[in-house]
Amino acid sequence: MNEPQDHDYVEALLSWYVNGTLTEEERAQVTAHLEHCGRCREEVRFLTGLQQGIKRVADTSVDPELGLKRLMREIDAETPARRRTPWWQPSLAAAAVVILVQGVLLFNLWQRDDDIGVRLAGEAPPAEAVILQIQFDADAREEEIRALLRALDARFVDGPSAVGLYRIELSGVTPGDERALARALNTLREQREIVRHVAVE
């Protein structure tokens, strides 16, 4: 293996030579080449240092207990029947129930706003926009709400109403795209710590 093309072939394998995942055959080829190639030996030295450095600086600090608690709570909320059907079917069904039940609930809340003469200020969103009405938990932090809106590709268009309702526009969802809407509602449903109610207008 002294040809330039062999050098290129071996050089492309050196990262995985260093992380120890090459096949035996590849490893033997690299080892043989290293015996007479100073450039590749220097590259191995660099890559070994890089591997050690990356393992040192990688951020893996996340509290497992907090995340695990949340995960288990969400799993608890699922029905046992779900596991016998494709995962997305119950999600869509659950989203539909959320729309139906909370839509009715919030429709009434919204009406009460009208009754007491309080309306949301602001311009009306475009007719073709997908608008959700949402009520955040009293303890929700601003950064959590910001992250949620970013995840949903949404923006505030109105609120709060007298009962604390906001209207958000789902910029990334086209009207009529039920699957995208269901995904957005699912995301909201998974945010029980910060979202109390949600409904589609």
Binding site: V62, L71, E144, A151
Partner: peptide, 19 residues
């Protein structure tokens, strides 16, 4: 972003449970 990463981690583990 750590906040977004924690969200995605939760989604991934839910997918592990479901799939």
């Amino acid at each position: 972003e750590p906040v977004v990463a924690a969200e995605v981690l939760n989604d991934v583990m839910l997918a592990v449970w479901r799939q």
